[in-house]
């Protein structure tokens, strides 16, 4: 009969040691809003569960270098109440807060949302757009990686044996910069993105776009950073023509599938629609910053 070993280490080193020992048989547990559901659905059956919620570093939010360091297990409800983070990166926070319901928000974490490896994770495209990086601890020490490098395929990440995402670094926001995230779901809540788009734009004094990042979710086997979509905006005043080019570039970057949540054609088209709308919100925010 199956049994499960539950570990609740108090330090990152201990957690890494436990994960490294057990390899593929182990899964870290933060909020559990994906892990427990997958176990109950008999999709996965890990033999070792390493609960990371007793490690202080993974539960902290702190200012760092003009930006913020957010622990990988910080729940959405906590980050949503952090006014300074919300003011600096509203797109990242609103994407995080779209996950699940009020109850789920009390548990769900950025680390879990990313490392679950879903191409449709809401917070991932928003973090990609904001240029967020993650700090990864492993048997060989620590390393930093951009969020867009984490997920490699549905359910798969670039993390090595024993590696654990411990925190995210939300960089200092440049002047006249704004971010936004929009997703399409058929309902108003309690759903998984059919398309998710994060956009971040930086404007100069005259309103010309000097920098942009566009992240796409649910339209390819992994969340995408789309430089071509950003290029469509940079150097423009975000006029209708630039927005149309953005939409076209976002659509062109899609490599989706037909599934129960949407058709390929639908995802490609709506990725463009949402990119345009998200860029509109991001530029409004940039102008008011």
């Amino acid at each position: 009969m199956r049994s499960i070993q539950y570990e609740a280490p108090a330090t990152v080193d201990e957690a890494v040691a436990r994960l490294a020992e057990a390899g593929d048989k182990a899964r870290p547990l933060a909020g559990g809003t994906d892990l427990i559901v997958q176990m109950r659905s008999r999709l996965i059956s890990p033999e070792v569960i390493v609960d990371v919620k007793n490690i202080p570093e993974l539960l902290q939010v702190s200012e760092e270098g003009g930006g913020f360091r957010v622990g990988a297990a910080v729940p959405g409800a906590v980050l949503g109440e952090n006014e300074a983070v919300v003011a600096m990166w509203p797109g990242v926070v609103e994407a995080f807060e779209l996950i699940g319901s009020t109850q789920i928000q009390g548990r769900a974490s950025l680390g879990g949302n990313l490392c679950n490896g879903s191409p449709a994770a809401d917070s991932t495209p928003a973090m990609i757009a904001a240029g967020v990086t993650c700090e990864i601890a492993g048997p060989n020490g620590r390393r930093e990686a951009p969020v867009e490098d984490l997920v490699t395929a549905p359910g798969e990440t670039s993390l090595g044996r024993g590696e654990l995402v411990v925190s995210f670094f939300l960089p200092p926001r440049p002047a006249r910069t704004g971010d936004a995230y929009l997703r399409f779901i058929p309902r108003t809540e309690m759903d998984i993105a059919v398309v998710g788009v994060g956009v971040c734009v930086t404007l100069d004094d005259g309103g010309t776009c000097t920098g942009a990042r566009v992240g796409l979710g649910a339209v390819a086997p992994r969340p995408l950073l789309v430089p071509a979509a950003a290029d469509a905006l940079v150097g423009t005043r975000l006029d209708d023509g630039a927005m149309a080019n953005l939409a076209a570039a976002a659509s062109a970057a899609c490599n989706p599938i037909d599934d129960k949540r949407g058709t390929k054609t639908y995802r490609i088209k709506v990725a463009g629609v949402l990119a345009r709308r998200a860029a509109g919100i991001a530029s409004e925010r940039a102008r008011s910053n």
Partner: peptide
């Protein structure tokens, strides 16, 4: 939004409230 979605093999693709979409209150 509600519908049974079948695969080519004739298996039900959406046997849960996540993808069998009854309206939620805010809808």
């Amino acid at each position: 939004n509600e519908e049974y979605v079948y695969s080519e093999a004739g298996t039900l693709e959406n046997p849960g409230f996540l993808d069998y979409r009854v309206p939620v209150a805010s809808d």
